[in-house]
Measured scan of single mutants.
Amino acid sequence: VSSEIYQWVRDELKRAGISQAVFARVAFNRTQGLLSEILRKEEDPKTASQSLLVNLRAMQNFLQLPEAERDRIYQ
């Protein structure tokens, strides 16, 4: 997982004009609270716990989908 993931998520929230709650639900089936905590802490993926890595990997995989497909999912 790239250490850029945190910025990618922030950029996607702005680009798509969606809330953290929507992104958390569709990208990795978690709550806004968890996403907020992940973004606030910005732990280095190289030293992250296994559970954090699973979530970061799910977010990264979601962000690799084509933009149009992500936008459809947000609706």
Rank of each mutant, 00 (worst) to 15 (best):
L13M: 15
N55Y: 12
Q75T: 13
T47A: 11
D44L: 06
Y74N: 00
E69P: 01
T47I: 10
R72M: 11
S2F: 06
A21V: 07
I73V: 12
I18V: 12
R30D: 11
L56I: 05
E4W: 07
N29M: 06
V22R: 08
A27P: 01
F62N: 03
S19G: 09
R30F: 05
L13V: 15
N55E: 07
M59D: 06
L63K: 04
V54F: 11
D44Q: 04
D11Q: 12
K14F: 11
L35F: 07
D71S: 05
S36G: 10
A68R: 11
R72G: 12
D11F: 06
A48G: 11
K46N: 12
S2R: 08
L56K: 00
R10G: 05
L53V: 10
R25C: 06
A58P: 04
Q50G: 13
E37H: 07
R70E: 01
L35M: 06
W8F: 15
A27F: 08
E69K: 12
A27Q: 02
E12I: 05
A24W: 02
N61I: 07
L34Q: 14
R57N: 10
N29W: 03
S36F: 07
V22C: 12
Y74L: 01
A24S: 14
F23Q: 01
E67S: 10
I18W: 03
T31M: 05
Q7F: 02
A58T: 09
Q32V: 07
R10N: 07
F28E: 01
L34R: 14
K14N: 14
L56C: 05
A27M: 06
L39E: 01
L53N: 09
L39G: 03
F62S: 02
K41H: 12
Q20P: 13
S3V: 10
L39T: 02
S19H: 05
E69H: 07
L63C: 04
N29K: 11
D71R: 05
R10Y: 12
R57Y: 10
E37S: 09
E69L: 07
R40K: 12
Q7P: 05
S36I: 06
N29V: 04
G33Y: 10
Y74M: 08
Q7C: 13
I38G: 03
S3P: 12
A21L: 09
R30E: 15
M59G: 01
R40L: 14
Q20V: 05
R25L: 09
E4F: 14
V26A: 09
R10T: 09
A21W: 05
L53F: 06
V1K: 00
R30G: 14
I18S: 00
Q60Y: 10
L65G: 02
D11W: 10
E12W: 03
R72I: 09
L34C: 14
R72S: 13
V22F: 14
K46E: 14
S3R: 14
K46V: 12
D44V: 06
M59Q: 03
L65A: 05
I5P: 01
R10E: 08
E42P: 00
Q60C: 09
P66N: 07
Y6C: 01
I18F: 02
K46C: 10
G33N: 09
F23M: 02
R72K: 13
K41A: 11
P66H: 06
K41T: 11
N61E: 13
Q20I: 05
S2G: 10
R72T: 09
T31N: 10
I73N: 09
L13Y: 04
V22M: 10
S36H: 13
V54N: 07
F28G: 10
L34D: 15
I5Y: 02
G33L: 12
Q7M: 15
S49I: 04
L39Y: 00
F23Y: 04
Y74D: 05
K14T: 09
R70V: 02
K41D: 07
E67Q: 08
L35T: 04
S2W: 07
E37I: 03
W8K: 15
Q20G: 06
A58I: 07
D44H: 08
R57I: 13
R30T: 15
G33W: 13
G17A: 06
L13P: 00
A48K: 04
E4Y: 14
D11L: 13
S3K: 14
F23H: 03
A16Q: 00
E69T: 10
V26F: 01
Q7I: 15
A16G: 13
S3A: 09
F62G: 01
Y6A: 03
K46G: 14
I18H: 00
G17R: 13
F28A: 06
A48R: 02
L52S: 09
S36E: 14
S36V: 08
K41E: 14
F28Q: 06
A27C: 07
L52Y: 05
S3W: 11
E42Q: 08
R70A: 04
K46H: 13
Q60V: 06
L39F: 02
V1E: 01
K14Y: 13
L35D: 03
E69F: 06
G17M: 11
R72L: 09
P45H: 00
T31A: 14
G17D: 15
V1Q: 04
D11H: 14
I5K: 04
L53A: 08
R72V: 10
E12A: 01
A24I: 04
L52P: 05
A27D: 01
S36P: 06
A58F: 06
V9Y: 00
G17N: 15
T47L: 12
R30C: 10
F28K: 03
A68K: 12
N55V: 11
V22Q: 15
R70L: 02
R70C: 04
S3N: 14
L65R: 15
V9N: 03
S49R: 10
Q20T: 08
R57E: 11
N29E: 09
A24H: 01
I5Q: 03
S49N: 13
D11C: 07
Q60K: 10
E42L: 05
L53C: 06
V26H: 07
A21Y: 09
E69M: 06
D71I: 04
I18L: 08
E43L: 07
V54H: 13
A21R: 12
R30I: 05
R15G: 00
P66A: 07
V22P: 07
S19E: 06
R15D: 00
D44C: 12
E42W: 02
R30H: 12
E42S: 12
A27E: 02
I5W: 01
V1I: 10
L65V: 07
K41C: 07
A16Y: 02
D11K: 12
T47M: 13
D11V: 08
Q32C: 09
E37R: 07
L65S: 06
M59A: 08
